[in-house]
Structure formats: structure tokens, C-alpha cells
């Protein structure tokens, strides 16, 4: 475990806590894409199937359980909570998830490192995570007056991915056999999707204005 990896995981954790805080404190999920949240739950579910087959470390196990638990509780709030579910922008959250789920599934079947069910599901989760933010970014573009917590949530998610790239560079340099092209390419693509958002996030911050995407 290096400092970049730890910082990345903590940033990821904080992003989820910020989202939960927004939902609890404001009793609203306005501006949050349920489609992206569904996709993340799917990502965690398929990636962490090895919870049952392999023990890596206590840290690893606890974090996996936390990510699974929090992602499903966010979905629970958005779908079923008496107050919160009414604040969901269903009409604006129109991205068709099927257009990313199917290509990712096909890609995972074609490009993987081992022909086993667990490995193909794991690879699918890597591809899917790379593009799972798209419905959220589309919804943000349609949202007038993006609130601070929503903006910071997406910013932290992007930062988490960027830190993972630093972690990979560090591991590549320090661990002789560390090679993972599928993960690296997906991760770089995923971080790239945030570039536009980061630009407007910093612009709003510098000018002391409310964030909005053109």
C-alpha cells in the first residue's frame, strides 16, 4: 500500500460520504443520477465477488463491504425514501444505461485475461466503472444551479481516479511484475471523462461563482 493508493481510496470513501451527507442533510438527491448509482452498485457487486473466494487483507475486506453497503443504501434512499425519492430528477436523468452496459459486457467477453466467469465479471466491472459517470455528467449539464455538495461529490470521484493513476505509476516503478493494461487503459479513460468537469469546477472556484456546466 503506497500513499497514492491510500489517498485514492480515502478520496473515494469521502466522495461517497459527501453524497450520503447531501442526502441526509438536505433530504434531497437533486442533481444526482440514479443511473450512475445503479451502475456503481453493479460495478462493486461484480468486482467484489472475490470476497467469498479470496482473502487479501482486513483493510481490503472492510473497504469492499463499506463500498457495497453505502452504494446500496444510496440507491435505497433514492428509490424508496418517502421524502428523498420525490426529489429525484427522473425526467432529466435520461441517459440510456443499456448503451454502456452492453458494449462493456461484449468487451469483457472479448478482451480479458482468463476465460473464467469470475474473471470476465471482474473485467466487466473494470470497463463499466470507466464509463459509469456518464449519466451523472449528462445530468449535471442539465441541472441549473448545481449545489456545492453535488459538485464536490463529482470532483472527489474524479480526484480518486487521478490518484489511482499515480498509484499505478508508483507500483509500475517499484514492483517488477506489476502490469495491468486493461485496468490502466480503463482508468485513464475514466479520468479523461472528468477533464471537462474539472475545468469548469476550477473556473467556478477561481471566480467564486456557482458551478454550472455549459
Amino acid at each position: 500500500m503506497n500513499i497514492f493508493r491510500l489517498a485514492a481510496d480515502m478520496t473515494h470513501l469521502i466522495s461517497i460520504l459527501v453524497l450520503l451527507l447531501k442526502i441526509h442533510a438536505t433530504r434531497s438527491c437533486r442533481g444526482i443520477s440514479l443511473k450512475t448509482q445503479d451502475l456503481y452498485a453493479l460495478v462493486f457487486l461484480f468486482r467484489y465477488l472475490d470476497l467469498f473466494t479470496r482473502y487479501i487483507s482486513l483493510y481490503n475486506t472492510v473497504m469492499k463491504l463499506v463500498f457495497l453497503g453505502t452504494s446500496f443504501s444510496i440507491i435505497y434512499f433514492m428509490r424508496f425514501h418517502r421524502v428523498v425519492r420525490n426529489t429525484y430528477d427522473k425526467e432529466q436523468d435520461t441517459f440510456r444505461s443499456i448503451f454502456i452496459v452492453v458494449p462493456c459486457a461484449v468487451l469483457a467477453l472479448l478482451i480479458n485475461q482468463e476465460r473464467s466467469v469470475l474473471e470476465i465479471l471482474w473485467t466487466f466491472s473494470i470497463y463499466l466503472e470507466a464509463v459509469a459517470i456518464l449519466p451523472q455528467l449528462v445530468l449535471l449539464q442539465r441541472t441549473q444551479n448545481i449545489d456545492n455538495l453535488t459538485g464536490n461529490y463529482v470532483f472527489l470521484l474524479g480526484t480518486y481516479r487521478g490518484l489511482y493513476i499515480l498509484n499505478w505509476i508508483y507500483r509500475y516503478l517499484t514492483e517488477p511484475h506489476y502490469r495491468q493494461w486493461i485496468v490502466w487503459l480503463s482508468g485513464v479513460l475514466q479520468t479523461g471523462l472528468y477533464v471537462d468537469f474539472f475545468y469548469y469546477y476550477f473556473l467556478a472556484w477561481r471566480n467564486n461563482q456557482k458551478l454550472s456546466l455549459p
Binding site: R5, D9, H12, D50, R54, I56, S57, N60, M63, K64, F67, Q113, W122, Y164, N167, R171, E175, P176, H177, Y178, R179, Q180, V183
Partner: peptide
């Protein structure tokens, strides 16, 4: 084993 390394990541 290197191929499996990232499986210790989240």
C-alpha cells in the same frame, strides 16, 4: 503473478 496484482486494489 504480476497480472493478478491489481486484484488487491479496490
Amino acid at each position: 503473478e504480476g497480472e493478478k496484482a491489481s486484484k488487491d486494489e479496490l
